[in-house]
């Protein structure tokens, strides 16, 4: 995948993810609309491909305003990834040379890779995760399960043990998927399925859309890195 194509695909996916997020905020009765109506319009312009360097920069400014408004991310990791993507896109657009453009966009790919690997690492070093207890606690008393019925899963230790190790191993082994474009595409499909499950079980829909928006960067990165060998 060419760098320009990967950047354009990222812009479209980011614009769609931001559109979805912004529409949700229009329901709010607080003063959030002053931030999210302009964000919605800019997101649609980004999808349309209108003046994307400047639109990306304006979206970055709104993202910073959101950080101040909510005194941190509104939606934890999803907002962090959102800001990371829009920052890397802005840097890539205004980079002085092609080399720095690649560095800025490559940084996004690297962070995407780390988002899986580090998540796996912090779990495998934790005995509660290795035993399945941590995932049991997530279902039993965390704020995430979307219904009371899902809390019953806390009483299925074998299932949770298997699920815990499936997640840990997938996250830890994700970097190996960069060995070929085929393995990377398979890994990204599994990752997307993982985010989809999290969206269904824990209501984390924004993670699904925003992580997918970063996938073009790693598809480009894999080809760019492998081409050097």
């Amino acid at each position: 995948m060419e760098l320009d194509n990967a950047i354009r695909l990222t812009e479209i996916a980011l614009g769609l993810a931001f559109t979805q997020q912004s529409i949700e905020h229009l329901k709010s009765t607080t003063h959030e609309k002053t931030l999210f109506i302009p964000r919605l319009i800019l997101s649609l312009l980004l999808v349309a491909g209108f003046q994307t360097p400047w639109i990306t920069l304006l979206l970055l400014a709104i993202s910073l305003a959101m950080l101040i408004r909510f005194q941190g991310p509104y939606h934890g990791g999803a907002d962090r990834m959102s800001l990371l993507i829009v920052s890397c896109l802005s840097l890539a657009h205004f980079a002085p040379t092609h080399y720095w453009r690649e560095v800025a966009f490559g940084y996004l790919a690297l962070q995407l890779l780390l988002s899986y690997f580090i998540s796996g690492w912090v779990k495998i070093v934790n005995p509660e995760w290795r035993s399945g207890r941590a995932l049991s606690d997530v279902f039993q008393f965390s704020a995430y399960p979307v219904s009371d019925a899902l809390r019953q899963l806390a009483h299925s230790p074998r299932l949770l043990f298997t699920m815990s190790w499936a997640v840990i191993l997938f996250e830890l082994l994700f970097p190996l998927s960069l060995l070929s474009s085929t393995t990377l595409i398979i890994a990204l499909f599994i990752a997307a399925a993982f985010h989809f499950a999290n969206a269904c079980l824990f209501g984390l829909n924004r993670f699904f859309w925003i992580w997918i928006a970063a996938y073009p960067s790693i598809l480009w990165f894999q080809q760019r890195v492998m081409a050097t060998f």
Partner: peptide
């Protein structure tokens, strides 16, 4: 980012 999702519950 630290990406330490669900490191401890």
């Amino acid at each position: 980012p630290s990406w330490r999702f669900f490191d401890v519950i």
